[in-house]
Each structure stands twice: as structure tokens, then as C-alpha cells.
């Protein structure tokens, strides 16, 4: 079972087990993880599920598509090199993913 480790800006860590094939955003919303807003529900239209991915996990992620890249210019907290939109990150078997949520999404 994949596990996502969410760290918020205060440093609190939440370890959430997810389902294979679900997105990190869905995993967060379903488990009430604060710091992920996901207003649009995953249609790449709101940029409110922004996360920073730990560098060693980042490299292992599938590359982002153009539209995700474009939407990252619309985040409330400016994007960094390790930014992703969590609605685009699908979990796979055995994955351990470490992400930090930004101070605000809106």
C-alpha cells in the first residue's frame, strides 16, 4: 500500500495510507489533510492542491505535462523547482512519497 507523508508549514507530519491509482490530492481530501484545498476537484483549473515534493522523491515522479506546468504559475505561494500539483500525482504500489504543503493555497 502506498503511503504519503504530508508535512504542513508548522512541521506537523501526517502519514496517510492511500490506494493505488488514487491521486495524492484525493488521498489528502479523503483523509481531511489540511493544506490541500482542491477547489476544482482535479480538473487542473484551480492550482489549490500545490505541494513541494522532497527532492529524492521528486526525481522518481513521472514528468509533468504542459498544463500542470502552466497551472503552477497560478499558485498562491510561488512555485519552486520541486513544486507539483497533487491532483496529477497517481500513487503506485509500495510508493513512499514525502510532500510539504504551502502556507496557503488561496
Amino acid at each position: 500500500m502506498p503511503t504519503v507523508h504530508f508535512t504542513d508549514t508548522a512541521g506537523t507530519v501526517r502519514d496517510i495510507e492511500g490506494n493505488v491509482g488514487d491521486s495524492v490530492m484525493e488521498t489528502a481530501v479523503r483523509n481531511g489533510v489540511p493544506g490541500i484545498v482542491a477547489e476544482c476537484g482535479g480538473s487542473l483549473s484551480c492550482a489549490t492542491c500545490h505541494v513541494f515534493v522532497r527532492d529524492d522523491d521528486f526525481a522518481a515522479l513521472p514528468p509533468m505535462e504542459d498544463m500542470e506546468d502552466e497551472m503552477l504559475y497560478g499558485t498562491a505561494v510561488d512555485r519552486e523547482d520541486n513544486s507539483r500539483l497533487s491532483c496529477q500525482l497517481r500513487l503506485h504500489e509500495g510508493q513512499e512519497l514525502h510532500v510539504t504543503t504551502p502556507e496557503t493555497q488561496v
Binding site: V37, E39, C40, G41, S43, S45, C46, G74, V106
Partner: peptide, 18 residues
């Protein structure tokens, strides 16, 4: 407040919301 549904939700979510 931002949980409002004024822009819809899901695949048709308002393209121009931002």
C-alpha cells in the same frame, strides 16, 4: 467559504475561476 459550489465541481469546473 471556499468550499462553495459557485464554480461547479469536477470536470466542468469553471475554466475562468482564477
Amino acid at each position: 467559504a471556499r468550499e462553495h459550489l459557485s464554480f461547479g465541481f469536477g470536470i466542468h469546473y469553471c475554466l475562468g475561476n482564477m
